[in-house]
Design a protein around this nucleic acid. Structure first.
Lengths: 214, 214
DNA sequence: CTTGAATGTCAACAGGTGTTGGCCTACGTT
DNA sequence: AACGTAGGCCAACACCTGTTGACATTCAAG
């Protein structure tokens, strides 16, 4: 109510605490992303945010609720209905890699995946994200057979993230993004096509042909 | 019951402590598999083994060395040179699932994968296993192009393990093993074939330039 | 200036952790 | 039977954790 008539403040509810709250959250994301849930300490987060540990508690209540706040994620999936079917695989893989490697300050994805492996709460959040974001986006692009394809595609893309960003398998980290697109696109495309075939006919005799490897 | 110099004993160094040492190790594997490295406490392992925590230290030296012992793994990869090329994909996926779901007491695989995500030591062990077990086995079956295919196959199979056994995505856990073979085989097969095509065509060198993600 | 809430610091609690050293006990060897 | 030693237990240390409550500081409004 007081700041409402402030002529010089274009931001209506800009409290001073929101600033430090954001700083804490960013520090927490960094720590959760690189250390995982268990090894991340509130004291370390507070130190990174240059603030007292008790402030973290005051603003977020507990370590678990801070974790929940760090898990808020929007995958920002593109509109897949616009891309031609034969380009779907490459588009999908490329966007996935872009999303992971673009903004280094945004480790939300890393937080989620790393934690989901050992933390039940993060795993449930992941189920939720699959159901509310991944499945619908793929459903719009693939039609009825999406229900069968989406889980497999998720498996393939998460396998990529796992080996590249978490385990950091040298044979995978050595490849440039576009090389990874080349390497994975045939498999992704085959998954989509196999489902389309299965939807068309009950036979599964033909081995799906790979998309032209450029 | 048997003395050390028993001429008929084929096991020369059968000490009594080896028994409890094995019990501790099994308990440790269980805990590491279900809780991960950080949340596993020596006290809990000792309680499961019905022994004093200090015994764990006496036998394994430290928590880290106990962890190392739990990470000793033999993938028991089958001889892939015997299978026909067109059956390779299905065989690979089926064996992978068998290996994960056969013996519930053997959680070594679960220990390794779950820990590798948050623990540097486990990640390095995984690099090592890929280099000494996975890459050679695939190299024998696929020939020269295996070097390009093996990492991608690893990505796909680990993605399956990740979503099914760690994150437990409902859409994946709901499927029976043979359904998963059907769903994944096209993609795996496409990966193998794409590499074969690339090898046949003008072999533009696939020497990867080192890119450092994140 | 006074006031009172918002913002932040300090010190401590209560519990859990890996790890250690001393003590006991049972058993295989002599 | 005596004994030395390996196998096992107990209690404790030193440290770190999340969390809490009392106290200090800022800051805008009356």
């Amino acid at each position: 109510m007081t700041s409402a008539q402030d002529p010089q403040a274009p931001r209506p509810a800009e409290k001073r605490s929101d600033r430090t709250k954001a700083v804490i959250l960013r520090a927490a994301r960094d720590r959760f992303a690189s250390d995982g849930y268990e090894r991340t300490t509130i004291r370390a987060v507070a130190a990174d945010a240059a603030i007292d540990p008790s402030m973290v508690m005051r603003y977020f209540g507990s370590k678990e609720r801070l974790f929940d706040a760090a898990l808020a994620i929007d995958l920002r999936l593109p509109d897949l209905t616009a891309v031609a079917p034969q380009d779907l695989a490459r588009t999908l893989v490329r966007h996935f890699l872009d999303r992971w490697e673009s903004d280094p300050a945004d480790d939300a994805l890393l937080v989620l995946l790393r934690s989901a492996v050992t933390n039940e709460r993060a795993a449930l959040r992941m189920h939720e994200i699959f159901a509310t974001q991944v499945a619908p986006a793929l459903g719009a692009a693939l039609g009825p057979q999406a229900a069968a394809v989406a889980p497999v595609l998720t498996t393939q893309l998460l396998g990529l993230a796992l080996t590249r960003y978490l385990i950091r398998l040298p044979a995978i980290t050595a490849l440039a993004p576009e090389q990874l697109v080349d390497a994975l696109a045939p498999a992704v495309q085959a998954t989509v096509l196999a489902a389309a075939d299965a939807a068309q006919a009950g036979s599964r005799s033909a081995v799906p042909r790979s998309a032209d490897p450029r």
